[in-house]
Write a protein that binds this DNA or RNA. Sequence first.
DNA 1: GCTTGCTCCTCTAGTCACTGGAGGATGTAG
DNA 2: CTACATCCTCCAGTGACTAGAGGAGCAAGC
Lengths: 142, 142
Amino acid sequence: MSGQSFPIGEVARRSGVKPPTIRYYEEIGLLPAPPRTEGNRRVYDDADLRRLAFIRHARELGFEVEAIRTLLSLQDHPDQSCAAADTIARARLAEVDERIAKLLALKGELQRMVETCATGRVADCRVIETLSDTSHTHGALA
Amino acid sequence: MSGQSFPIGEVARRSGVKPPTIRYYEEIGLLPAPPRTEGNRRVYDDADLRRLAFIRHARELGFEVEAIRTLLSLQDHPDQSCAAADTIARARLAEVDERIAKLLALKGELQRMVETCATGRVADCRVIETLSDTSHTHGALA
DNA sequence: GCTTGCTCCTCTAGTCACTGGAGGATGTAG
DNA sequence: CTACATCCTCCAGTGACTAGAGGAGCAAGC
């Protein structure tokens, strides 16, 4: 009932991650090395598929591979010490919060521009002001 | 009242962008080449500072340099055709919206983990499920 | 006015996270 | 059994930095 298996190309199509990138993720240990067929071909399952989709989304959101590694470690070691997991989750949470805040600010500004635009010309664009606040500039990256 | 000027090191400290990176941005045309002193040193002003801080935040949010270039073009050509600006702003807006949605989902999951954690063990971590939705997987990048 | 020491300059090379291609084996359809 | 797609490994290239070598500029102290 859950034993679907796919070759790398199929996984690539379904996850949106290209074959060379999938092999690369295996190489750097983000994705476990899958079993192989007689003919040495990689065989993936649904769990791999989900993991890859997760990695892809996280990368698109701008998380570095190391950050993703820590997120995946939460998944991979559900029995690990709570303190460790908590620390990781909290750090990521802070990062996520800041990103959301910045994106919301940028969104507001882009919306304002689209609206202003409807009424005439772009006039005063403040995209820079929106994201150039240097107050919480230091100490952002976890 | 607005004539502050700084050498590259000062700009680096204030913007959080390192000198070599600032020079790199100049090279690829994200930042205009500033005037130089007698002794061939770059001299920046407040506008450069804001622009750099903006670029930094946008990069942290995962926007590619090309996307940032289009955002900056809104700022740089406030008199350009509204249609062009509108198209750019709308495309970025869609991207921003999707990012916000994904980050909120991830945030919820991380929060749940921190809470669960407080009560005992990590147990079932679903960070992967949170971001592995493949439904709107294709057609995301503008 | 000259040395000490910091910042700056350019240039080249290295890193991270991929991306693409060469050259060859495998698997599947006619 | 021949096409032809897909896979394999390996190696080179890209984007966006990052670090280092080697040298010039400048401010401060003696």
